[in-house]
């Protein structure tokens, strides 16, 4: 059913992504691809994988942005995957019932056997979370690694999405954002985690933690972190150099 669950549970599983820490290494995207091409929505088809113009289905993409100007500007690496919204229009527009939101944990999934490949769900998603598999002819998307997080064949420590398990710097967190006392909820609280495009009203479950305020002084030396100026010759103590500077400036 593409109607949203009438009685959703309080559990809202999702990700918290720390933009202050992410170094843009793309390891989470690669790990996602590796796990999911054999997982619930397998395969993540590639086209022309060894050709001139390789492309393919990915559930997680890392964009890099610049924000602000000059010394106050920041480079921000920005991983983006399905946000498992509370108001997912991708689900309600689906004409066949292939797209659905699980009542028990809020995960948004696609039933590939019902999908007719009309692509309307991908139009309805403002975030570009869904990618079409041309070979299979169905829409595919992030499953929040549903085949890992509930998998009792895995060690408990591994029962997190592949992207979270692999992140080398700990920029990705997984948990229940419906529980105000969960680690992820506390993190969102402390660091003022926010929604992407809140004005569209999709109410994403995944949250982003903003980059911390940048420092303008290095910590240990106290030296100003301002760019070096071309040093003016008249300020030098060397007489010869000063004379040369004047002679050459004539």
């Amino acid at each position: 059913m593409t109607a949203l669950p009438a009685h959703p549970s309080d559990r809202k599983l999702g990700l918290v992504i720390d933009l202050d820490i992410c170094v843009g290494c793309h390891a989470c995207a690669v790990s996602c691809k590796e796990w999911n091409t054999g997982g619930h929505m397998a395969p993540l088809t590639d086209y022309e994988a060894w050709g001139d113009s390789p492309s393919g289905v990915w559930f997680n993409r890392i964009h890099s942005f610049e924000a602000g100007e000059g010394a106050n500007g920041r480079t921000v690496h920005f991983p983006k995957s399905c946000l498992h919204c509370e108001q997912p229009a991708c689900v309600t527009v689906c004409p066949t019932g292939a797209s659905f939101k699980r009542a028990e944990d809020g995960i948004v999934l696609v039933n590939e056997d019902l999908c007719i490949g009309c692509k309307l769900c991908s139009w309805a998603c403002p975030y570009g979370a869904r990618e079409f598999d041309e070979d299979v002819g169905v829409m595919k998307k992030c499953t929040l690694c549903i085949d890992r997080i509930y998998n009792d064949k895995l060690e408990e420590v591994d029962r997190v999405p592949a992207c979270v398990a692999t992140c080398p710097v700990g920029a990705r967190h997984f948990g229940d954002l419906g529980d105000p006392n969960s680690e992820v909820s506390k993190l969102v609280q402390e660091r003022a985690g926010y929604d992407l495009m809140p004005e569209l009203g999709y109410k994403p479950v995944n949250k982003y933690l903003p980059p911390r305020t940048g420092r303008t002084h290095t910590g240990c030396t106290g030296a100003p972190a301002t760019p070096l100026q071309e040093s003016p010759a008249e300020s030098t103590g060397n007489r010869l150099l000063r004379w040369l500077d004047q002679a050459l400036s004539r």
């Binding site: 933009l19 843009g24 793309h26 995207a29 113009s53 390789p54 492309s55 393919g56 289905v57 990915w58 993409r61 890392i62 964009h63 890099s64 942005f65 610049e66 924000a67 602000g68 100007e69 106050n72 500007g73 920041r74 480079t75 921000v76 920005f78 983006k80 991908s122 570009g128 990618e131 079409f132 041309e134 926010y194 929604d195 992407l196 495009m197 809140p198 004005e199 982003y208 903003p210 980059p211």
Partner: peptide, 25 residues
């Protein structure tokens, strides 16, 4: 700015795309 939530830092512009070739999106 609202898509990335980085507007408080200033104007937001793309530095590097996530992939080199065209994708479905």
């Amino acid at each position: 700015e609202s898509a990335t939530g980085l507007g408080h830092l200033g104007k937001v512009r793309l530095l590097a795309a996530p992939h080199t070739e065209e994708n479905y999106l």
